[in-house]
Design a protein around this nucleic acid. Sequence first.
DNA 1: AAAAATTGATTGACTAATCAGTCATTTTGA
DNA 2: TCAAAATGACTGATTAGTCAATCAATTTTT
Lengths: 186, 186
Amino acid sequence: MDKKSAIFEAALRLFVEHGFHGTATSLIAKEAGVANGTLFNYFPTKDELVLGLYAAIKQELTEYVRIHTGNAEDIRDFMRSQFLTSLFWALDNPLKFHFIQQFHTSPYSSMPNASVDAEQTAYHTKIIRAGIKQKMLRNLPVDFIISLVNSHTFGVFQYLQSKKLSKAEQHKLIETSYELLKKMLE
Amino acid sequence: MDKKSAIFEAALRLFVEHGFHGTATSLIAKEAGVANGTLFNYFPTKDELVLGLYAAIKQELTEYVRIHTGNAEDIRDFMRSQFLTSLFWALDNPLKFHFIQQFHTSPYSSMPNASVDAEQTAYHTKIIRAGIKQKMLRNLPVDFIISLVNSHTFGVFQYLQSKKLSKAEQHKLIETSYELLKKMLE
DNA sequence: AAAAATTGATTGACTAATCAGTCATTTTGA
DNA sequence: TCAAAATGACTGATTAGTCAATCAATTTTT
């Protein structure tokens, strides 16, 4: 296994379990089956490991959504697909999704990593503007809509994590949660 | 000033700025204007300080909402008031509200503090059940509704924090966000 | 009323443990 | 053969938590 991936994997698990500062780099190296110094060959500082892990996970999510979103012409279908796919990914990768949340509410999110999410936000902005123009979405500030969609996604995820539901029940609820979101924003 | 309060105040500020493990107890003591050892007279361990701070803040919010929620007979007015009041408090206490979020996505939330939020959840459950019975709320799992309301509140707060709006504009947006929530859940 | 004694809160120097990061050396693989 | 990758012992700094000493306020004794 690729050592960098092994480090990412161990770091993800330990960060979620013990927090960023609560996890020693030496422990990450050990769990990754790698020597202490090797970790610092790949990531000169612990901060760069955290930021690098966030960037990698965020990119993985974006990529997954991009691939699995049918290239729907209809904007409504497109938005629906984006929402559902994100949640499916979150269910398949609960640790990673949790890590994203942990990162966002942590001091790291205001560090000079910047612009990792910038192009994604720009992309979302474009879609939402189109949705508003076509009267699919209520005319609200775009950033406001983005905030609401993100937090809604997070709320649904949290609920699903706390309950033991079958795959079918999960998908049913995700469908419902999209209906709710649509109703709220149209 | 009460030393325990001084410690809480410094800890809140530093935890939000540097994270839980990223903040040294010695720094908290220093910023609180208190000797190192004094901190440990009040809180035998750092964990107990974190958990104690969370409990205190959560109780403050609950108390504030309880007092400022008009004892409305109408359940709809009551729910509306609960939502608006929570957001007003969050706007007046951004650090504390941020801390609550930070805590929830941190490993501390799964520590044996338990049941701090239990009675509050029980209270919310009662209200929501009544709302469903009176056809004000869609018939969805109660926990699901609670998750959605909480995350919605958080989303609105995050947006308001990121923008520089006047008090009037803020209140307008909070009103709107309640309309959206109502529409989604009815 | 003054002095002495008792109390509990407060202090900060201290320690053992742990941390992020370094570096001289060894291993790997082309 | 040799450059790059990997190693792990090591270090200086920092950490959570300890503890004997001090202080201020109150109570008891003279």
